[in-house]
Write a protein that binds this DNA or RNA. Structure first.
Lengths: 159, 159
DNA sequence: ATGGATTTGGTCAGAATAAGTCAATGTCGC
DNA sequence: GCGACATTGACTTATTCTGACCAAATCCAT
């Protein structure tokens, strides 16, 4: 059974999907009522799902006629996507973060499942090598992962 | 008598088989209860059986409504399988040979251009690492290339 | 025009839940 | 008895959901 958060997330995504809108206006209060939850749950959904990392911007306004607006960013130029990925990966990245990042990129159709699999294997192999053969510190390993991951993603995102 | 790990592995595979599902959602807690073991046993089963090298992707989430999702990747066209990866690659392989092999696989539509690029970059990065950071002999480097290449190709080509 | 009432949304911390890690230990085939 | 594979449990980390309290925009009576 999916979590409430998941359900609300999907609902918002459907609204965005509809007509390929680039943004939606939501009422926190109404949403909370509709899904039978406390209003701050909506903030949680937004904070955890509609982040800049996932390609969204959020605006809001309080008071009468208040709203929450969710904007989906479209990165059309390959160079933009490459920079975006550069930021996402950073200088150092844990395997947990890598897995989440790859799942997310697949969700966004930036990667296919097969490409994701290849990347996971390449990273795992490097991890094994650096740990067992060269006895590198966790920090160095994570730095090398970040470097490899950036090169891999950059190359195919630019294609 | 088969080990518990095998039994649980079979169970998960059956769930995947059912209706040819591409993925299953599991509850670690429930599985452990059902098979009368400690929850971390499930992690062991997954770590040892449902690896990317065997064509599986695993996603998971902790906390409330947590889950473990196992995704099985499959080739669309079984006739396009490239067997004999072992012989093609061998124990040692030069970058020249790798390039030729990959070009050939792409020609035969077994790899996409993007997948080929990923593999080339992974190999090149490893080459650089082994040469500049660890000063490995050419022979050792070629042996590691062969190992990485086999893992990558086996997973994606033999699904 | 103004200021209090009303209407919204924001923040934060805590409880409950569930998965991950790791190292110690056990088991089985050779 | 050794080595690989399997099992266990103590400890760690992450996610969801809620509610009390805060902040801002608008409304409206004067």
């Amino acid at each position: 059974m999916p979590s409430l958060t998941r359900i609300i997330e999907r609902h918002i995504q459907e609204l965005l999907e509809r007509n390929g809108e680039e943004s939606v206006f939501l009422s926190r209060k109404d949403l909370a009522e509709r899904f039978g939850c406390v209003p701050s749950q909506i903030n949680y959904v937004i904070r955890s799902r509609f982040t800049p990392e996932r390609g969204f911007l959020v605006e809001s306004q309080r008071g009468g006629h208040g709203y929450i607006r969710i904007i989906r960013l479209r990165m059309k130029k390959p160079e933009e996507r490459a920079n975006h990925i550069e930021e996402l990966v950073g200088e150092v990245i844990s395997e947990q973060e890598i897995k989440k990042l790859l799942a997310n990129l697949q969700e966004r159709k930036i990667l296919t499942a097969r490409e994701r699999l290849l990347i996971e294997i390449a990273i795992r192999f490097q991890e094994q090598l650096c740990r067992e053969m060269f006895d590198l510190s966790p920090f160095k390993r994570e730095a090398l992962h970040a470097e490899l991951l950036k090169r891999l993603l950059r190359s195919i995102v630019l294609l």
